[in-house]
Amino acid sequence: MLAACAAAGRRFNDKQAAAAAARAALPPEEAEAERRYLEKQRLLFMGDSRRRERRSRRRQLPREITDELMVELLALLGPDLGEDGEAVLRRVAPDAPAWVGPAVDGVLTGRALAMYRRGFLAELTEAYYINEDEDGTGFHEDGIWRHCAQGSE
């Protein structure tokens, strides 16, 4: 499983590097036009909010790493998770907290993670439930993530 996660990470990084190289190869006027277009789209769909800018700074992760089954299986390893498995879950938690759900809310996953290392389950639970991007100024902005029940999507 860890090898699959590492391979997915390498493929994802290679795709991002290729996209960056393609953007760098654009003539300056095309690059500027693309930048203006993307900025216009960001303002149109996200507004000009500091909170949303902070949220957009999250790194993108490969789908294989955030896959529900992969996260759940890693969590079920419990005491056998190891440093590499912990690193994968730690990578998902801050950048895609909704995808940590199977590790935190699963039937046996919480118990398994609690047997791995003291405090690790608490760290993942905090990343899953606490939304530090909310400043409390809007309706339902109390700093708690609103996640769907698993299987209801």
Rank of each mutant, 00 (worst) to 15 (best):
D48W: 07
D48T: 13
S49L: 13
S49E: 15
E53Y: 10
R54C: 12
R55A: 10
R57D: 07
R59N: 08
Q60C: 01
P62R: 03
R63M: 03
E64T: 01
D67I: 03
L69D: 07
M70V: 14
M70I: 14
V71L: 05
V71R: 06
E72A: 14
E72Q: 12
L74C: 05
A75E: 04
L76Q: 07
P79N: 06
P79Q: 14
D80A: 15
L81D: 00
E83D: 12
G85M: 08
V88D: 02
V88I: 11
V88T: 06
R90F: 01
R90V: 02
R91D: 02
V92A: 02
A93C: 05
A93Q: 06
A93Y: 07
A96W: 13
A96P: 07
A98C: 03
V100M: 12
P102R: 03
A103V: 05
D105S: 07
V107R: 12
L108I: 05
L108F: 12
T109V: 05
G110F: 06
G110L: 08
R111H: 14
L113K: 06
A114Y: 00
M115H: 13
R117F: 01
R118M: 07
R118H: 15
R118I: 08
G119V: 02
F120Y: 09
L121V: 02
L121W: 13
